[in-house]
């Protein structure tokens, strides 16, 4: 992957963010700037705070100190700001979270119609375009439960894309999938990256990280421990904790 020019404007800026669950601090002074078009892979042991961090970006979680700014809009308790950020940042979940009572097409058209006020015909045309792009257009009139896990996750990606977001957050998108379905979802994400989408992916798929990431970031105990371009990150990690983690992950794969 080619690196975006370093002077590109920051799209997502996370500044000294702290978060506690009661007395337990899950995020410790996280500072991270993501430029437009940049692809970030976040990895780390479970409980390290990586999912929590990306869930703070679209305010599914609150944070107690610091600041997150998305495309010039501060993510705070302002409903207007939260709305703006959520309509511009798409999210894909580990458990897909498709709406089971709606068809695939309706899953994709609901938010553009309700949030953007797009009319039905336009919303359906957009939905068909993105469903085609994730190669699942032929399933448009089925319900989520009729699809395989990999297909459902591709629909979830298309659903997020239908809002034409400026950035996409992926929260362990392949962790709930059977092994044979992981590739179809990763391929979709690789295609998205190639088209220049700004992406933050929480994943342990190191092959994906090598192929797509501009930066790989290792998190542990609520801190950013190490970040580097993948070729450096995998060959020459500087921190012992990163080396231990990579040793475990790569031994499994």
């Amino acid at each position: 992957m080619s690196h975006p020019p370093s002077d590109a404007a920051p799209l997502i800026s996370i500044e000294a963010v702290d978060k506690w669950y009661g007395a337990f601090q899950v995020l410790r002074g996280i500072t991270l700037t993501v430029r437009k078009g940049e692809k970030i892979v976040l990895c780390g042991p479970s409980g390290s705070g990586k999912s929590t961090l990306i869930r703070c970006i679209n305010h599914l979680e609150t944070y107690q100190a610091g600041r997150i700014v998305v495309d010039g809009v501060v993510v705070n308790d302002s409903v207007k700001n939260i709305d703006t950020v959520r309509s511009e940042v798409g999210m894909v979940f580990q458990s897909f979270n498709l709406f089971p009572h709606l068809t695939i097409l309706q899953n994709c058209t609901l938010a553009p119609m309700r949030v953007r006020g797009v009319n039905k015909a336009t919303a359906e045309a957009t939905a068909r375009r993105y469903l085609d792009r994730v190669r699942i257009l032929d399933q448009a009139d089925k319900y989520p439960a009729q699809l395989s896990g990999g297909q459902q996750q591709r629909v979830a990606i298309a659903r997020a894309l239908c809002m034409e977001p400026k950035a996409m957050l992926f929260d362990e998108p392949t962790s709930a999938l059977d092994p044979e379905m992981v590739k179809e979802v990763l391929d979709t994400m690789v295609g998205l990256a190639a088209d220049g989408m700004t992406m933050i992916c929480v994943t342990h798929e190191m092959g994906f990280a090598r192929q797509v990431a501009d930066r790989v970031i290792f998190m542990a105990n609520g801190e950013l421990v190490e970040q580097a371009p993948p070729e450096v990150f995998f060959r020459n990690p500087t921190q012992q904790r990163t080396r231990d983690f990579l040793g475990q992950i790569l031994a499994q794969h």
């Binding site: 959520r86 999210m91 458990s95 498709l98 609901l110 938010a111 309700r114 949030v115 659903r159 997020a160």
Partner: peptide, 17 residues
């Protein structure tokens, strides 16, 4: 499941919708 609300929120859907 909590994920239904979260997915709707992440898409920017308001309480009413």
């Amino acid at each position: 499941p909590r994920g239904q609300t979260e997915a709707a929120q992440a898409l920017g859907l308001h309480y009413r919708a």
